[in-house]
Structure formats: C-alpha cells, structure tokens
Amino acid sequence: MNTVLNVEHLKVRFNSREVIADFCLEIQRGRIYAIVGPNGSGKTTLLRAISRNVRASAGCIYLNGKSIFRMSSKNVARQMAVLSQLHNGMTDATVRELVAYGRFAHREWWQSKTAEDEEIISWSLARTNLSGYDDRRLNTLSGGERQRVWIAMAIAQKPQILLLDEPTTFLDIAHQIETLELIAGLNREEGITILMVLHDINHAAHYADELIVMKNGRLFSRGLPGAVITPDMMREVFGVEADIFPDPETGKPIVRPRKVAK
C-alpha cells in the first residue's frame, strides 16, 4: 500500500462560498509534497480540512485506506501529525513536558507514561537538536527553537505523515532553512511523508519532490518542480512575470519574479 493519504472529491464551503471545489489528491508514502498557490487559493484550507480543523461539506479523506471521518481522534493522531501556524498558552511549560503531549494518543486515559514513551520523547528531542533543553521553559526560547519544539512534539506522535502549514512563517532566513532542512531530514532518515504548505516557491522547488499548485480552490497542476514551474504557470497562478533558471547544482528551477503580470 503506497498511498498514505487519499483526498477524494473534497469540497469545503464557508457559508455559500466554495473555498475548495471537488479536490482530489493522492499522497504517496515517503515523499515530500509542497502545496503552493497565491493568497486565497485554498491551500491552508485544504490542509485544515485534511487535519479536520475545518469541516468538509462533501467528499472524503482516507488515511491508509480508512476514512478519517470514521476514525477516533487518537487513531488519526497515531498516524498523522499536524504542525499548525499558531500556538498558544502553557508558555511556562518545559520543553520535555510539551514534547510528552505528543504521546497522548498512544495511551488510554488511565495509563501513565511508559519507558517506551520516555525513550521516544528523548529521541524526538535529539532528532530536533533539543537534547539538553528538557527543562527549559518555552518562554525562554527563541522563535526557531520554539518551532523545533513543536516539530519534536509532532514527531513524538510517531506519525507516518506530517502536515505543516507554512512552517517557516515568522522565522528569519537562517531559521527558515534550518527548519526546512530538519523536515527534509525527517523525511529522508525517518521515512515520514511530508505534506506542507509553503509560501516561498523557491523553497518549495528546492525541498519538495512534488508540487501541488492551487488556484481558486482547485488543483491547477501537480508534478515534479521542473515540470510544474513554468513562466506560464507563474503568470496564470501567481500573476507575475518571472524568469526561471535551473539551479546549477541540483538542476531544480529557481524563480526570479520580474513584475506583476498585466
């Protein structure tokens, strides 16, 4: 079974406005997917529908062949983790306490943490370069460190697929690259399938195996970065005239916007 996530004829409606219209998507195990599109194209809504944070008005989403609408919250969480853009509260919690919440879905309400849980928490911390941060309070960490804490919490769920909504927002360029490298490493070394919304098309081209381009709530095109990123696509979807060069090292496309398309 190589399909981990399958979105079938998904529709999302806010009042009478259709934000996602008859969307189909198949996500193969072990790959990195980036969803790109202009503001209002429905990319965040698509991710939020898959993570059950907005209600689908029609269609279905299958996780490992089972409808997520018929699965328990914990069962979904054992297979899929989601990193949202905003986090609240509990800023006086320690890093280890927070990462431990990643194990919530793996035990029943009467059980306490097992040695295996502790081991996975330590592994998550090590994997996100947070070893030694165990007792640090969240409110003493920088933005980049905090983002690593949330990623550590997500991978402590031991998911097969990780959904991320613009994981680089609010970060400076060094922390953006650090975060994307970390995500790529998790995919490469741990085999976690990645589905993320990215704003920066160059980041998407560089890190993703496959791009999903959205426009007006519909799939515009999908495929390898080299095939999808074209001057026509940049004009039609993003409304910019752009030059596209191959990266001398990787051969992947680099987008250089020139001006707003008329």
């Binding site: 939020r48 993570s51 059950r52 944070n53 328990s72 919250s73 914990k74 069962n75 979904v76 969480a77 054992r78 899929m80 983790a81 989601v82 990193l83 949202s84 905003l86 986090h87 609240n88 509260g89 509990m90 919690a93 927070l98 919440y101 990643g102 919530f104 879905a105 309400w109 949330w150 919490m153 997500a154 769920q157 959904l163």
Partner: peptide, 24 residues
Amino acid sequence: VFMAERLNILVLGDDTARSLGLNV
C-alpha cells in the same frame, strides 16, 4: 485528576490539540 492533561492539551490551541489526538 483525570482531565488535567486534556485541559493542558486543549490550552495549546484547537488545531494543535486536535493534531495530538484530543477530541476537542
């Protein structure tokens, strides 16, 4: 005793709590 952890998770925000497997 039994709901303290759930409330801790809920306080992280609805999206995060749902991702962690809480029935928000």
